[in-house]
Design a protein around this nucleic acid. Structure first.
Lengths: 370, 370
DNA sequence: ATGAAAGCGCTAACAA
DNA sequence: TTGTTAGCGCTTTCAT
């Protein structure tokens, strides 16, 4: 008995599909049209050196003519990697994360990678789910900033167990750096130190600080930078000039400065842990008839867009958002198998930049041209 | 001659791979472990009704134990659809786009779809490239807001030609609505009308307007709303009270108000096409010793975050960002083949919301409890 | 209720 | 330089 021919059946399915839908053109289609093997088409489209220039051009022309679009899914499945990176951020509101993501998207695109962006909405549950989603999508690596609500870190361990490189930025999971896990962060300590040193240079002597929850690295580092800058300049930190708040909003700033102003010895400067806090404080100061910076100088943190829009504009610490995004991607790419990227340190720490504006400038700047 | 057995060769490749890498567990692996067919595993994982409860549970338990992660790539390739939507925005800075994207991500996630977010950086070149990328990734539909630099629209036509549904939001390509193309926009006209009507109610009579380039729908509609509101209330638009600017920044606002104030009959109110323009104008007003809203009332547009942070806070028109994102996704999903979504109109137009703050409130509010 | 087998579109090893 | 062929991991008829 003759072996059944399989062509007829095949042909039928394909024709049927063709009728259903004006189907997208595939490599096989091009091969049929040009009477060459699919592999040749594949090679030609990739401009492989082992295909003749003539066929290469013919193929590319035909592909363009028929609006051939490579099927990334199939290629990724076959090749075993997807040229795609996963990014998981707590949210995309405010200034910081969008800006960082922007830097990432740019760098990734430049290196020929796609990016899938997900949000955890600051919850651990969604964080875990999105991580799974990214793994399902077979991303080659994941960049993540952990949600505030996250308390356990097993889900990140699992990513590493899958052999997927992980880069934390800004908010990093504690104790995970090592094989397959790296971090990119801002040097909050240095930023805070610079901010407070600047206030001291401007002649301030009683500098208050509104801090966030100190169990978070970020807030603790800012606080420590504040303390060390004071002591390095011979000032003794006054515990009464520290206001700790669970959130770092306008309301916190208003409450903080109000508390300070009621002290027997009120402060002559405020280092706020965020720009929003600085704004809240400035509003109260204005209500009480105090001038910024003459009576109280103010410095914020993050260099949010609105710092230039308030009256006066607020001195702030820039977080190098774009750069952070770029470096996160560079770091991740350098971790991919077969990467030739220059090796970056496993923990990148960015130097912040102090942007001095009117809210802290007490000294007349003596204009000397040099 | 016996047909060559292919098993040995196969086995070898697999073992080799296993040695290379601690490979991810597949359906085939689970099948081997449980001594059942791959198809059974597949069905069990999908909780198909045609598989016995017992095996279903056994399979799911085993899968969990081995941290099985479905390969989305393979499934999508086989099924012919990826459960993924593409989003292409000009950028992710500022307030508007991040917020809209947020709404999209939320709705998509709720409906079990992934989202790939790309940025065009406001250039047509990148816009075209990113569209290709999305098509390559076999997204099931694309949501896009067109770049300012975009002048031709063939690349969008091509998306439609591929049978991929397209939804424009906020910035829509002209003349494309129809089969496979829909839009979601804000009713800028209504927003502007409401803003100006509000100023008139507050007793303003000479209302100026800083407008953006009028070849863009958005700006033209805001301008028209301004005109119509004036006329509807018996006021005659004064051409001297219109300032047209190619950009809508603080600088534009400052320049605009400066020009207005030099008029023989300066305005008593400003309707700014953006919040940034409003801020710029307010800065100049303060410098000149004029009070807001007593001397000049100010209304902005977009309800940016910082409108509540200035002194005074700025009255503005909210653009319903989150809602816009959600509706864009809903619209897109309703266009997918086999969708059971309720039909939305091909052109969704959102009603904006006027948020009244101090910058425009001249009338003392008579507090009457009713 | 389960199994066998084909094939989504692409690429890479091997052969010619 | 080009062709042949197998297979990435999954789903889905069709058969049992």
């Amino acid at each position: 008995m003759a072996r059944p021919e399989k062509s007829p059946k095949l042909r039928k399915t394909r024709q049927q599909r063709l009728k259903d839908h004006p189907r997208r053109v595939t490599i096989a289609d091009l091969a049929t049209l040009l009477q060459v093997a699919p592999s040749t088409i594949s090679r030609a489209l990739a401009s492989s050196p082992q295909v003749s220039k003539a066929t290469c051009e013919r193929v590319q022309a035909l592909a363009a003519e028929h609006h051939y679009l490579p099927n990334h899914l199939a290629a990724a499945l076959r090749k075993g990697h997807s040229q795609t990176l996963g990014v998981l951020v707590p949210h995309l509101t405010g200034f910081f994360f969008p800006e960082v993501v922007n830097g990432m998207a740019e760098e990734a695109s430049r290196m020929g990678y796609n990016v899938i962006i997900c949000q955890s909405n600051e919850t651990q549950g969604l964080e875990m789910r999105q991580l799974d989603l990214l793994l399902n999508a077979r991303v080659e690596g994941i960049i993540v900033s952990v949600a505030t609500a996250t308390r356990t870190y097993k889900h990140f361990e699992q990513v590493r167990a899958q052999g997927v490189p992980l880069v934390f930025f800004d908010r990093v999971a504690p104790g995970m750096v090592g094989d397959g896990v790296r971090t990119v962060r801002l040097d909050d300590y240095a930023g805070a130190y610079a901010a407070v040193a600047h206030l001291i240079e401007q002649g301030c002597e009683r500098i208050a600080h509104v801090a966030g929850p100190l169990h978070l690295d970020i807030n603790r580092n800012r606080y420590q930078g504040y303390l060390d800058a004071l002591e390095a300049h011979g000032l003794t930190p006054d515990p009464a000039l520290l206001y700790r708040s669970p959130t770092l909003t306008q309301v916190a700033g208003a409450a903080g400065i109000a508390a300070f102003l009621d002290l027997p010895e009120p402060p002559d400067a405020l280092f706020a842990a965020t720009d929003l806090v600085a704004v809240g404080a400035m509003q109260v100061l204005r209500e009480r008839g105090l001038r910024v910076p003459e009576d109280v100088a103010v410095v914020g943190f993050s260099n949010e867009l609105f710092t230039t829009l308030t009256q006066p504009p607020i001195t702030s610490v820039d977080q190098r958002c774009q750069l952070m995004g770029e470096l996160a991607v560079k770091t991740l790419l350098s971790m991919l198998p077969g990467s030739v990227e220059e090796a970056l340190p496993p923990e990148v720490v960015l130097a912040p930049e102090l942007l001095i504006r009117s809210s802290s400038q007490r000294l007349l700047r003596l204009a000397t041209s040099r």
